[in-house]
Design a protein around this nucleic acid. Structure first.
Length: 685
DNA sequence: GAGCACTGC
């Protein structure tokens, strides 16, 4: 059935006002050339700054900050708030003394590009007045840097050494509408800090409508200390078209709609949001078939998703050849992470795949859910970055009105043991009574506390143990991984463990070509590194070979490994090794003793153990949940081992264990007796 | 026989 659309609203008429667009040039510069659209390139920087909508609010913002401790700023992307407000504060003298303005961002790429932009605007060298800090890259100068951009995790780490954040005069949390787990923890902690440091100012910057709720959170149990200001964004107008009837099959809906746009609308590229990889491939195939039937069509159909190899990703950023129209079929990656230039039309089916943690089964489910209003608005905005655009929503206006304002915060749908350990280390004793902006389910907190106790990070009273718990909290790792790393010296294999753990932090190292022949070749080559002990040791094997290569790039190219990812893993490993030295854990290697590595892993992963049930499926030892080996595992095609540990469970149509490791059941009793004493006999039968 | 997207002293 062809999707039908209402006419665009009359008030969304084209009104082209060329102005500076790029609040956040958020294209990953590691991948591609950076595309920063700036239609005011011929204007002086000062003129450009004054054209930003935020400029009109400058004095008002400064006034409000004088009178309120917390300012909640609502403004769409493009308003210039992330770049301008820190400069206004700096010029207004908020950095007198030795204090700084700190701005947090959820992504590293935002941190570096914003800091670069602002230091250009102030005509200073990056790292002097304006600096940034991300993991592995501290580009600030002590006593010189006044405006500091950083990732949220960095500010949280700073709280461990400076709990009241005395270095800062103003903290600005940016992109708060994304509600990452760090944003929520920071808001909870900052609420406490604000009470103790009345001179500290907090700016919460958000793109959406949840401002009232956040304002209420900061006003609770204090005087009216928080206020809201809305700033107009600066995107070109985007006309909104809703489907008249619900679209039953969104794959067909996307295909029909893009074809209809192509046949009836003026030039301009099309971006369609799709849930998953197979749907992308399906739609791309259908559109290509359509293109092939009609030789007169000048259409360029491109897929875009995170696991696409680099050279394929770059294609969507290339300027569309004259007379052609580009159609990009993308996952959610195009919603916030990357900005594709030239998009005028957006097709939005209104669904997304989201991760959900189930504390009863201790598993993550990947579920398809309707997007939020905030996402719908963000997606629509992707059509208005070049000139006025159009969004085609494959759902009705009534459907839109029923959407949640925003996706539930990550805090409410994720595994919490890392977060709880951090809070304990920051002196929050009663986690259940902590002021969470959106409290997580109590069950999720309980499960996290139990795991931390089983790992030995907490004692029976729930206090951080010394030194184990305290040290685990210091490490930038999941508590299970932290436990494994800190124990690796005793097992004589810290080098191997550091390799494995670093590979578990990064994205998939395997490049999966989309062409069938190459995909087969990649799979055959991967076999060279596979070992019967499972995925974690196979990964170690690959990494050991990688480390020995003189020409690492060529090695990766030959075996279809992702060089960029392995390079990042090398950095992570080096950091882990230096952390081991810091905490006096011997850095040793036992390349031939695989059992030592396996036992060391078991000493932390014991709660993620499963045994082969006579039904042919696996069962967790506690909970008795049915599990299966993920088809991507090296164990998938081998004889099923009796006992395994795993790094992760994903629940799609079944529960799959990923990143497996073959173990012996005696090790569980030996290494985690407190956890397994009572249940092991049942499981071991 | 399966894969939304990010991210940390």
């Amino acid at each position: 059935m062809m999707a039908k659309f209402l006419k665009p609203r009359e008030d969304d008429d084209d009104d082209i006002v060329p102005t500076w667009q790029s609040d956040k040039p958020d294209v990953n510069t590691d991948n591609v050339t950076s595309f920063i659209f700036n239609s005011n390139v011929s204007l002086g920087l000062e003129q450009q700054k004054q054209r930003l909508p935020i400029f009109k609010n400058k004095n008002h913002i400064l006034y409000l900050l004088e009178n309120y401790q917390t300012l909640i700023l609502v403004g769409e992307t493009g308003s210039g708030k992330s770049t301008q407000i820190p400069q206004y504060l700096f010029e207004a003298g908020w950095c007198s003394g030795s204090r700084l303005i700190g701005i947090t961002e959820p992504r590293r790429i935002s941190v570096t590009s914003l800091a670069t932009r602002v230091s250009d605007e102030l005509r200073t060298q990056l790292g002097h007045i304006v600096g940034y800090t991300i993991r592995f890259d501290d580009c600030t100068t002590e006593d010189v840097t006044k405006i500091k951009y950083m990732t949220e995790g960095i500010l949280m780490r700073e709280m461990m050494t400076d709990p009241l954040l005395r270095k800062y005069a103003v903290i600005m949390l940016d992109e708060v509408h994304e509600r990452t787990i760090f944003t929520d923890i920071l808001m909870g902690l900052l609420k406490k800090i604000l009470k103790k440091r009345s001179q500290l100012k907090l700016i919460i910057s958000s793109a959406t409508v949840d401002a009232e709720e956040i304002c209420h959170f900061f006003n609770m149990s204090t005087t009216n200390n928080a206020t809201i200001l809305s700033v107009k964004g600066q995107l070109y107008p985007v006309s909104i078209n809703y489907a008249i009837d619900p679209v039953p099959n969104y794959v067909q809906g996307v295909v029909d709609t893009t074809i209809k746009i192509h046949e009836s609308m003026p030039v301009g590229d099309i971006l369609a949001f799709v849930i998953g990889l197979d749907q992308i491939e399906h739609i791309v195939r259908l559109l290509k078939e359509y293109v092939n039937q009609r030789t007169d069509l000048k259409l360029l159909v491109l897929p875009m998703h995170g696991s696409l190899p680099n050279n394929e990703q770059i294609k969507v950023f290339r300027p569309t050849p004259r007379g052609m129209r580009k159609i990009v079929i993308a996952t959610n990656i195009a919603e916030t992470s990357i900005t594709i230039p030239g998009i005028v039309y957006v097709v939005d089916p209104g669904f997304v795949k989201a991760q959900w943690f189930n504390p009863n089964t201790l598993t993550n489910s990947l579920v398809v859910v309707p997007i939020s209003k905030a996402s719908a608005i963000q997606r629509a905005g992707r059509a208005g970055r070049v000139r006025s655009g159009h969004v085609y929503r494959l759902y009705t206006e009534d459907n839109f009105k029923q959407l949640n304002n925003s996706t539930p915060p990550e805090m409410q749908r994720t595994e919490l043991s890392s977060a709880v350990l951090q809070l304990k280390a920051l002196g929050i004793h009663n986690i259940l009574r902590f002021a969470f902006p959106s409290p997580p389910p109590a069950q999720n907190l309980r499960v996290a506390l139990e795991l931390l106790f089983a790992l030995g990070a907490l004692d029976e009273e729930g206090n951080l143990t010394k030194p184990l718990g305290e040290t685990m909290a210091e490490l930038p790792l999941h508590p299970i991984h932290a436990k494994v790393l800190l124990g690796s010296g005793e097992f004589g294999c810290s080098d191997e463990i550091a390799s494995i753990l670093s590979l578990l932090q990064v994205q998939d190292i395997f490049i999966k070509p989309s062409s069938g022949a190459l995909a087969l070749k990649a799979r055959v080559l991967k076999r060279n590194f596979e070992v019967e002990q499972g995925d974690l040791l196979s990964l170690l094997n690959i990494f050991a070979f990688y480390e020995q290569q003189d020409n690492k790039k060529e090695f990766c190219h030959k075996y279809f490994f992702n060089y960029k990812v392995l390079k990042r893993a090398t950095e992570l490993k080096a950091q882990m090794i230096s952390l081991l030295r810091k905490y006096n854990v011997p850095v040793v290697s036992s390349p031939r003793n695989t059992n030592a590595v396996l036992k060391c892993l078991t000493s932390g992963f014991f709660s993620n153990a499963a045994y082969l049930h006579h039904s042919g499926a696996y069962h967790t030892v506690r909970g008795n949940e049915e599990l299966h080996i993920h088809p991507s595992s090296v164990l998938y095609t081998l004889q099923q081992p009796q006992w395994v540990i795993f790094n992760e469970i994903v629940h799609t149509n079944r529960s799959y264990m990923k990143d497996l490791c073959v173990i012996e059941h005696d090790w569980l009793l030996e290494l985690a007796p407190h956890y397994y004493q009572t249940v092991i006999n049942f499981g071991g039968r």
